[in-house]
Simulated assay, not measured.
Amino acid sequence: MYQLTNELVFPHPMLADEHGILAYGGDLSAERLMLAYTYGVFPWYNEGDPIMWWSPEQRFVLFPEDLRVSKSMKKVLRNKEFVITQNEDFSGVVRSCKEVQRPGQDGTWITDEMEKAYTKLHAKGIAQSIEVWKEDKLVGGLYGVVVRDVFCGESMFAKVSNASKAGFITLVQSKQFKLFDCQVHTDHLERLGAKHIPREDFLRFLGIVV
């Protein structure tokens, strides 16, 4: 595991340890975050801990052609139960991802520092959000970072059933991106068609020599 300094560099992502941790320390400046995502690296840590930078051996991703939409979700989308927008309320999406109660979790990994950092990335046009509305209320959404034609998802939330799924499916079907980086496994995304690929394959997709 490498300790970062003020210098804007990262070790090669293939040097991550067996847990997927590449480095710790550094900061969440827009420049460092942009460099990290370019190398397929993302931050994930708890409040009060050093910033941890990850490059998992197995990357959980979704190729648009693998998307699976259930009959019930097709009906939800066909009936236009939600209004779905893009980049209309980035701060609202991040704040909701941070505050929403999640089963089995005591808190959130989205610290105040991370919220500010990704808001700055959004101002630069690098971080994007999908908002899901019902009766003019924000009931779901997701946000992530764009690297070339890859959408690196960071978090999603839903205050009503099917809201986050509707937003994610709509984004995938928009054909804006060729790959969706889901980072780590969730049953929810696996049911939608996400799967693990080796880190080497993911890095090659980003144009990184392995």
Results as ranks from 00 to 15, higher is better:
D149K: 14
D201R: 13
I197A: 01
K165E: 09
S174T: 11
D201P: 00
A163M: 04
L203R: 04
I197V: 13
V146W: 06
G207K: 03
F151L: 01
Q173W: 11
H185A: 12
V160Q: 10
L179R: 00
F177L: 05
G153H: 04
V147H: 07
I197R: 06
S164I: 04
E200F: 00
L192Y: 03
K175D: 15
M156C: 07
F157E: 02
L192I: 06
D187G: 12
Q173F: 11
R199F: 06
L206R: 04
H185C: 11
L192N: 03
E190K: 15
F177N: 03
T186W: 05
D149R: 14
V160N: 08
R199M: 11
Q183P: 02
F168D: 02
S155P: 05
I197D: 08
G207Y: 02
V184D: 02
S174P: 10
H188D: 08
F205S: 14
R148N: 15
K178Y: 09
Q183E: 00
E200V: 14
A158R: 12
M156A: 01
K178G: 15
D201W: 07
S155C: 00
F168V: 02
M156G: 06
F157I: 06
D181M: 09
F157A: 05
G193V: 02
V147E: 02
L203Q: 06
L179I: 08
S174E: 09
S174D: 11
L192C: 06
Q173L: 14
D181T: 01
T170H: 11
Q176V: 04
F180I: 08
M156D: 03
V146I: 12
I169V: 10
L192G: 02
K195F: 09
C182R: 01
F168Q: 03
A158W: 11
L171F: 05
T170K: 12
R204A: 14
F205Y: 14
F157V: 08
K195R: 15
Q176W: 12
N162M: 12
M156V: 00
I169C: 02
F177K: 06
S164W: 00
F151T: 03
L192S: 03
G153P: 00
H188N: 11
D181E: 07
V160C: 10
L179Q: 04
L192W: 01
A163W: 04
K159W: 10
R148S: 15
V172K: 05
A166T: 02
F168M: 08
G207C: 00
K178W: 08
S174R: 11
C182M: 15
L192P: 01
V184N: 08
T186A: 08
L206V: 02
K165R: 14
V147Y: 04
G167T: 07
N162D: 15
F202S: 10
F157L: 09
A166D: 07
A194E: 01
K165Q: 12
A166E: 05
E190S: 15
L206A: 03
G207P: 02
V147G: 03
D201M: 12
K159L: 15
V147N: 08
P198I: 08
V145K: 09
D149F: 08
C182E: 07
V145L: 03
D201N: 14
S161H: 15
